[in-house]
Design a binder for these strands. Structure first.
Length: 232
DNA sequence: GCATTAATTGGTC
DNA sequence: GACCAATTAATGC
């Protein structure tokens, strides 16, 4: 992971917490102290259980956050992209990261140290307020995910994750802009890769989706939405 | 082009 | 619906 220069002033991520408050005078000194680096595709930059080294912000790229479960099975708990925040779950209360994080493509990251983050939380109320709203929203999302995994069947869960990654990462040239393996879709939907493959091939037969190599494209989004509408 | 890895399919429990 | 095995497709080097 080599060091790289990313400047907040030229950053285009309007949804980034740091960027949102970069105009505040108190933020200046922290921004100067931030560290940034590039993480290559498939590399891990947060290790579950390792000591917390501050908060990460994605400058550009895509990342999965995972929790390791029983007999080594992984659960993808979050997928993130430009401007998103990582490592906030254990922040403040835990000394160690509660998740692991892997780059899904070459990703440029910004990192603020623990000390700086704590100082920001104490000194910049606008920032703290926004972060609190963010936590509330994230809590709601994760509760929704619990419900989905508990109540939806496999087909519905796969459709749901396809719709989710489609919405979050978009689709160009008819395929979703995110390189997830079938295994990773399974880790997200809480099932196995074989199940995912089976759902994908029946959806393909029904002409609701299409595949180009390992890439997936949604063809009939409305029909897919109808299938899971009662779980919304 | 070969070797490794991922996707797919079929079968068993 | 998970786990296993065999085949085929894709990808790295």
């Amino acid at each position: 992971m080599k060091e790289e220069l990313t400047s907040c002033s030229s950053c285009l991520n309007e949804n980034c917490f740091i960027k949102k408050h970069v105009h505040l005078e108190q933020m200046k000194k922290y921004i100067e102290r931030k560290r940034s680096f590039v993480c290559k595709k498939a590399q891990q930059f947060i290790i579950e259980g390792a000591p917390i080294q501050g908060l990460y912000f994605i400058y550009k790229g895509k990342v999965k956050a995972v929790k390791t479960g029983i007999n080594g099975r992984e659960q993808i708990v979050r997928l993130t992209q430009d401007g998103d925040t990582l490592g906030f779950r254990g922040f403040g209360t835990s000394k160690r990261y509660l998740i692991g994080a892997y780059a899904l493509e070459d990703t440029m990251l910004c990192n603020f140290s623990n000390e700086d983050m704590l100082e920001i939380l104490h000194n910049v109320p606008e920032f703290t307020f926004d972060l609190m709203l963010f936590y509330a929203e994230e809590l709601n999302k994760s509760e929704n995910n619990i419900r989905k995994i508990a109540q939806m069947n496999v087909r519905e869960r796969v459709i749901d994750t396809l719709l989710y990654i489609h919405k979050k990462f978009g689709q160009t040239n008819g395929v979703i802009e995110l390189d997830l393996s079938r295994k990773e879709i399974a880790d997200f939907a809480g099932t196995t890769d074989e199940q995912v493959i089976r759902v994908i091939s029946s959806l393909k037969k029904e002409a609701l989706i299409k595949t180009v190599g390992k890439k997936i494209g949604l063809v009939n989004i409305e029909k897919l939405k109808v299938e899971i509408i009662e779980h919304k």
